[in-house]
């Protein structure tokens, strides 16, 4: 069987292991479960797959109150009541009031597309299990009309999860899994280059050095991630800063450390580091 392989894009650098995992998911038509620290580009991966394969992307952000049903369709009762009151439209036709939402849309679409189920761990404990059937069979029934929606082309399903909650075994078994590791300095330099192509070498090296030193500070509640480094560099350049030294007076630390305790912890660590030299 032939399938289109994924090789990353200009905007998204992949590792060979990540490509393998994506290709496994594509070939076996299984959902791809991506986990990793926040800010390591889990969501961007889905965008990259979509643009790399030239497919449309449907984004379904999961919230704490999301139920599996919410991803399939909604029945707009209020609109129907409204129409019946004001005599607009054909109220008898219940199908007019069934609206497909992300998962339902992905199934109903005529062409293959990429469906991103973002941050699945945010929802209720049973949410992944409730989705199993739909994802497995790629079909569902609209209760109000009895219509069965069957996916014409199995969408490429990408599921992201922060490593916070344990997901059910039955769900895990059906997914191809990839854990996005935090990039090393070399890969990080390449990633930054993608976002800031004309960045000066000196600033790049200094910023990355400072960034990893900050990440290694003990006692941080939330360690800064790739996206925060990219933002930080953008701020530095906007402010016309050409070189950064890591100390308590490092400019725009707020772009990297977002919690007050973390800023304090870092300042203390920086002071401790300086004292022996003085």
């Amino acid at each position: 069987m032939e399938f289109r392989r994924f090789r990353g894009t200009d905007q998204y650098l992949t590792s060979s292991a990540l490509e393998s995992a994506v290709n496994c998911a594509l070939a076996l038509e299984r959902p791809l479960l991506v986990r990793g620290e926040p800010g390591t580009g889990k969501t961007q991966l889905a965008e990259a797959i979509a643009s790399g394969l030239g497919l449309r992307l449907i984004h379904w952000p999961v919230k704490s109150t999301t139920r599996a049903q919410d991803g399939l369709y909604v029945y707009d009762t209020v609109q129907r009541l409204y129409d019946s009151r004001f005599g607009e439209g054909d109220v008898k036709d219940i199908r007019r009031y069934i609206k497909y939402v992300p998962l339902g849309n992905a199934f109903a679409a005529p062409d293959r597309l990429v469906l991103l189920i973002d941050e699945i761990d945010k929802a209720d404990l049973e949410f992944p299990n409730d989705l199993l059937h739909e994802l497995d069979r790629m079909r569902f029934v609209v209760n109000e009309t009895g219509d069965e929606i069957v996916a014409r082309q199995r969408p490429v399903v990408v599921i992201t999860s922060n490593a916070e909650k344990e997901l059910p075994d039955a769900f895990l078994r059906r997914c191809v899994f990839h854990f996005i590791e935090f990039p090393d300095k070399e890969l990080m330099a390449r990633i930054v280059r993608v976002h800031h192509p004309d960045l000066e070498r000196q600033l790049l090296d200094q910023a990355i050095k400072a960034f990893y030193a900050i990440r290694d500070t003990e006692g941080l509640r939330k360690r800064p991630s790739t996206s925060e480094l990219i933002d930080w560099i953008a701020v530095l350049r906007r402010a016309g800063i050409a070189s950064v030294e890591l100390d308590a007076g490092t400019p725009f630390l707020g772009a990297l450390l977002k919690r007050e305790q973390d800023l304090i912890a870092f300042a203390e660590a920086a002071n401790r580091g300086r004292r022996p030299r003085a």
């Binding site: 060979s16 995992a21 496994c24 076996l28 191809v176």
Partner: peptide
């Protein structure tokens, strides 16, 4: 087995490692 039949491992041990890891490991 299916992945290997489709040639996802590209005939190399490295490829097999990556493929097997994606399919066998479910949590980091």
């Amino acid at each position: 087995a299916q992945a290997l039949r489709l040639g996802l491992h590209k005939g190399t041990l490295d490829g097999f490692y990556e493929t097997a890891r994606a399919l066998c490991v479910h949590r980091e």
